[in-house]
């Protein structure tokens, strides 16, 4: 990737330093050790089972249906959810986990578009017309009922956004207590010198708005309904 450009930086930052009444700080600034760090106390000693309970409970608050499946049951459970939604056309990630979780024949169906396989790179258009988008979750946050998607390459950010409905496949091995565990992981990756994926999504249920008299309406610009399928992979 070609390096970008920056304009007006020196005068802008010199002015800030001057207003702060000191010289420019150009190195050795580190965040301090904060006196309170309550985020690390939350659900520290929870078992996966307990985290799953928290997740399920939270999903009722965020209008998200939860189903459970073993790896063997998974194709049938996905079909059930699609039937409930009246969904036929699906858009999915190009992601090895689909094969690992026994979904190869599901992926070969004609009304499924695997991200990146559309002719003329028309994936956005086809995905926009799909009834349902299906992705795996890379990390799952129990506290907030959140799936974390590290997009990029075959994992197009459109798949969880443009179709009318959204299904997240959640291997139990991806569940952590809260956002802190994932942001720490990203922070460690940055420190190791790796580039952060250009789009990371923390998704908690379907899109919604309360802009009209503060009435909650589920389904605005993103998916109008969302389902999580918890897969026992432990």
């Amino acid at each position: 990737m070609a390096q970008g450009t920056v304009q007006n930086r020196e005068s802008f930052l010199n002015n800030i330093a001057e207003k702060l009444g000191r010289e420019r700080r150009r190195s050795s600034v580190e965040p301090p050790t904060y006196t309170k760090q309550p985020q690390w106390d939350i659900m520290v000693d929870y078992t996966t089972e307990q985290l799953v309970d928290v997740l399920k409970e939270q999903c009722t608050a965020i209008h998200t249906d939860v189903k459970e499946a073993t790896i063997d049951e998974l194709p049938a459970v996905i079909d059930d959810v699609m039937k409930e939604y009246g969904a036929e056309k699906a858009a999915v990630w190009d992601d090895l986990r689909f094969a690992e979780f026994g979904l190869t024949s599901f992926m070969e169906r004609p009304d499924i578009n695997i991200w990146g396989s559309a002719p003329d790179e028309d994936d956005i258009k086809i995905t926009e017309q799909a009834d349902v988008g299906i992705t795996f979750s890379d990390y799952t946050l129990a506290e907030s009922g959140t799936v974390v998607l590290m997009n990029g390459g075959g994992k197009g950010q459109s798949v969880s956004l443009l179709p009318t409905y959204y299904i997240a496949l959640i291997p139990l091995s991806t569940i952590v207590p809260r956002m802190s565990q994932v942001t720490r992981k990203i922070h460690e990756e940055v420190q190791a010198g790796r580039r952060t994926p250009s789009c990371i999504n923390f998704i908690s249920g379907p899109s919604n708005s309360a802009d009209i008299e503060l009435n909650l309406v589920v389904g605005v610009h993103g998916p109008v309904k969302a389902s999580y399928i918890l897969i026992d992979d432990l």
Binding site: G4, Q58, D123, M179, P197, S198, F202, I203
Partner: peptide, 24 residues
Amino acid sequence: AVGQKLTSYVTGLSGPREEGDLDG
């Protein structure tokens, strides 16, 4: 702001799409 644990979407964007990306 809204009494939610997290809003429906929290998105972290780091630069333009990368080589091989088809959206963004």
